[in-house]
Amino acid sequence: MPHADNANGRFPARPVSGRAGASLKHTHLDAILAGRDQVGFFEVHAENYMGAGGPPHAALARVRQDYPVLLHGVCMSIGAPQPLDAAHLARFKTLVERYEPAIVSEHLAWSTHDDIFYNDLLPLPYTDDTLRHVCAHIDQVQAAIGRRLLLENPSTYLAFAASDYDETGFIREIVKRTGCGLLLDINNVFVSATNHGFSALDYLADFPLEHVGEIHLAGHREQSDDEGEPLLIDSHDGPVADAVWKLYDIVVERAGTIPTLVEWDGDIPDWPVLKAEADAAQAVLDRHAAASARDVHHAAAE
């Protein structure tokens, strides 16, 4: 039965501010639908729902009745020098219209060249030329979907010597030119900082947190490169690392209770394990919300 606030056939508007959510995996569907208010929201990869119908859409529509849904693109190839794929953008727009997601996001990366599609999100040289075509692509996406797009910072394993900007400066300039928002993936910050030998705290101090509309948390794998140096892989196949939780706590203290997703895309655990990770993020958000409320109360009493 449709909800009373969905009588016109549209999905109900549900807030995500101050909420923590989880990736929607179909292996968890029965457990999710068996209860209510399991987590604050669910996020899906757009490319998994670009068919016209079938079981994936039926399942997502059921979840969308009771939860906010966030739409996260992984194949738009915002950073590629060639034009965006018009058919892909049209399908993306259709999904935005169909499910009315609370947040829409994509990656600062490229994954296509001509008619070749790579199964990875590849890094960019941070140059003026790259900046121009990234901004043009973001403008194109935002015009198509009629709303603000959040752009996710990448996890990287190499850096281009030709770059004219550092990553935070490049991202800040994108926001200035396009008006887009940002998705801050804290695990990506930690992975890149470890791989390149810079300070994650310094990176976050220079990141334009005032434009962040969503946070991602995820697990990573620890490996070594050919010289025996630490190499982290953004694998999304395990729990969030302690160091990432500490960085998350710092970000929430500085930036406020931003909607937060726990991603888990490989070696999918049972639902209670993923839910516990989302609950841990919610506990951080709730603790800082309570502290902020106390500060406001004390200031008003003075």
Rank of each mutant, 00 (worst) to 15 (best):
D206L: 12
N187V: 01
F42R: 00
L89T: 06
L232N: 00
P101M: 05
K93H: 15
F41H: 04
A46G: 14
F207C: 14
R98H: 13
G40T: 00
S192M: 08
K176T: 14
P123V: 04
A7I: 13
A278I: 03
V212G: 11
L182W: 10
L182D: 12
T178C: 14
R254I: 11
E97F: 03
V252Y: 00
L204R: 07
E167I: 06
D115I: 04
E302Y: 12
R19P: 01
A102D: 10
K176W: 07
H133Q: 10
H211M: 12
V251D: 08
T260P: 05
V63E: 09
E210P: 01
A4K: 11
D128Q: 13
T27F: 05
T130S: 14
D242W: 07
P259W: 03
V212P: 04
K25V: 01
G228W: 00
A193T: 04
A291Y: 01
E47F: 03
V175Y: 09
A255D: 14
D66R: 11
P230G: 12
T194L: 04
P83R: 08
E47C: 02
L232T: 00
D128F: 03
Q142C: 11
D249A: 14
D225I: 01
D286F: 00
A241V: 03
Y203R: 09
L158Q: 08
R14Y: 05
D286T: 13
D115K: 07
T168V: 12
I78S: 08
A59I: 00
V284G: 04
G228C: 03
A109I: 04
H298I: 15
T168W: 13
E173A: 05
G146L: 05
S77R: 05
A90E: 15
S77G: 12
E210C: 09
I103D: 03
A218D: 06
H288T: 06
E43K: 01
L71I: 02
N6H: 10
G73C: 13
P259S: 09
Y203E: 10
H28T: 03
G40S: 05
L70E: 11
D206I: 02
E302H: 13
R148N: 08
D249Y: 00
A293V: 05
L274E: 10
L149T: 13
D114Y: 05
I171H: 07
G51Y: 13
H28K: 02
F190M: 02
T257E: 15
A102V: 06
V189G: 08
